[in-house]
Write a protein that binds this DNA or RNA. Structure first.
Lengths: 221, 221
DNA sequence: ATAAAAATATGAGATATCTCACATTTTGGA
DNA sequence: TCCAAAATGTGAGATATCTCATATTTTTAT
């Protein structure tokens, strides 16, 4: 993980740094770069910063008693990390692992807990963020338990595909959708038999129209 | 649904009305009583109050395209209703149906949207509430998809039992746990065969020690 | 009190999903 | 470059769960 000064990023940036994501503390934010798989948060270590993802994406995993992990969420640009620690409601920590080169703004958790607690604009904004995540998760849970894998997988492939090509790792997809790797592969091979997907170098080309039908109204966000 | 003045409830109350759940608006709250199955919120009607449950419990159901409903959450004393509408992040409304005689404090949604938006203490408190629900739901989802019904049912029976007797309706339990009614009954009869539960008038007497083993670390809240 | 609706209950067959076993290919690090 | 680890892929059998059918009991409304 490398640290930069958020301020020192001249006008040559390839993207705009967001201005106001930490309310009254926005001026104190620093920019950090994480490479893929370089943990942003580790389940066995305290969280000393409140983060905001500027670019990249990450997965949150929960560590089970038997050492296995489950992906519980994906985080994308514009999402916070550590907000539940800021709110002092997080019981057990999770791992947050970048899936690719990821840039984050970070402010001191200690400062946040004193300053942002009195910042109604930030608090309302954070409330909307957390509320939105609650809706996402509730919706996902209901869909997840009422449809079988072929439907959920179709929706997931559509959500995560880029330019018609699906490139996710099967191991992670299986974890996220909560099915065994074996069964995921079985369903995927049915998709191939039926022509819904075609294997190409580096991924699968998806027949979006066919998958839309299967995906019904399942919405990953 | 009957309305009372919150103020007019003299000292003869059987319970204390909470003081500060609506922050700066707490003085404007009125007390309402709903009988079982008398909807507090209907999916096809706007939510014009922000609610707080003083006594009783309710279920939130989501209406599917085919008209079927799924229970997505239970609400107990000390929980809010309509907070996602207050935050302006609710996309589709749900039904909120009391499971028994239920008392709620309510304040005008319109007033809340103007006054409480600038009340940092309330916003932080609400943030903790919503964050806590997000954690609950995430945890529940992960457990729900990694354990089979016998484990989830054991945890659910322990959670919802009172004085060693489980009295929930099987139809609702099946909905909530996301399994077919048939399979729930099948698992329940296995519990009976193995002596984990004994049918008594009005419910099932549960062997808490035996169920604890099955329930593992699954935690409904 | 009666009829209708909901909840409870059980059986049988179908299938979605899991576990385990094993082979091949790709990837990441020394 | 090479090795170990991770990811991919397939087969076979077990089982958790679903669908459908149907009967009885309890609750609710008239």
């Amino acid at each position: 993980m490398n640290k930069f000064s958020a301020k020192s990023q001249g006008s040559s940036n390839k993207f705009e740094l967001p201005e106001n994501v930490f309310g009254a503390l926005s001026a104190e934010a620093d920019l950090y770069a994480f490479s893929a798989n370089d943990p942003i948060v580790r389940f066995d270590q305290p969280i000393d910063k409140l983060w905001y993802i500027v670019k990249g994406k990450a997965k949150i995993t929960m560590v089970h008693e038997d050492g296995k992990q489950s992906i519980v969420h994906f985080l994308h640009e514009g999402e916070y990390i550590g907000e539940l620690t800021f709110l002092e409601v997080e019981k057990q920590h999770k791992n947050v692992i970048p899936l690719c080169e990821t840039l984050c703004l970070g402010v001191s958790m200690e400062r946040a807990k004193t300053v942002l607690r009195d910042d109604p604009e930030f608090l309302f904004h954070l409330n909307q963020y957390v509320g939105g995540k609650l809706i996402q998760r509730t919706w996902f849970t209901v869909k997840n338990q009422n449809y079988e894998l072929k439907n959920r997988l179709a929706a997931y492939m559509l959500m995560s595909q880029s330019e018609g090509i699906y490139t996710q790792k099967h191991t992670e997809t299986a974890e996220y959708l909560g099915v065994s790797y074996r069964h995921l592969l079985h369903t995927l091979s049915q998709f191939r038999d039926q022509g819904y997907v075609v294997k190409v170098r580096g991924g699968y080309k998806v027949d979006e129209d066919a998958l839309e039908v299967l995906a019904k109204d399942i919405q990953f966000v």
